[in-house]
């Protein structure tokens, strides 16, 4: 398998993950596309330097999240959600509007978090264990735990307020 084949396989396997990251960190579709491309570009750039010291998913999340932080966002923020018209683009007409609406609420909740919490939340939702979250973020495992319980409290208090 050539380097290009390995890389395209990796991206195809994780295209959904990259898509979700770009939706969390951007406010409109144009920014989202830019960030998607930048993440793929950065992953390709560092693909040679990936040394199997960590899991490939750890490496991928780290590069993708770091790219997202340093991606300059435009200010076109729309109230109440991610600002992206359709979160799941469907090829057929069978649109599930209710699912879309729930997703918008989900993204709205994540958008309210600060940049550090956003990353933690995303990794948590992706089903990562505290140890891997710690590896990606550079926080200690206990710190990850404490911050995640704070995020949970924040979410709860928002529900009570609303």
């Amino acid at each position: 398998m050539t380097k290009e084949q390995k890389f395209t396989e990796l991206i195809k396997d994780n295209e959904g993950v990259i898509f979700k990251i770009t939706t969390v960190y951007t406010n409109n579709e144009s920014d989202q596309k830019d960030l998607y491309q930048d993440i793929v570009y950065q992953l390709w750039k560092s693909f040679d330097s990936f040394r199997n010291e960590s899991k490939i998913s750890t490496w991928m999340y780290r590069v993708a999240l770091n790219t997202a932080i340093s991606h300059l966002r435009s200010r076109k923020k729309q109230p109440g959600g991610s600002g992206i018209d359709k979160i799941v683009q469907r090829a057929t007409e069978n649109e599930d509007q209710e699912f879309e609406d729930r997703l918008k609420i989900l993204y709205a909740q994540i958008q309210k978090l600060n940049v550090l919490e956003k990353g933690l939340m995303l990794l948590l939702l992706e089903g990562k264990k505290y140890q891997e979250i710690a590896e990606i973020t550079g926080l200690t495992e206990s710190n990850v735990g404490t911050r995640i319980s704070r995020i949970k409290q924040k979410l709860k208090s928002r529900i009570l307020k609303s």
């Binding site: 932080i69 550090l116 990606i136 550079g138």
Partner: peptide, 19 residues
């Protein structure tokens, strides 16, 4: 200074601080 941040090597926390 912003452009030269090494986002390929730093972890999330350090990238936030540096950025």
């Amino acid at each position: 200074q912003i452009k030269k941040l090494n986002i390929l090597e730093l972890n999330y926390r350090d990238t936030i601080v540096a950025f």
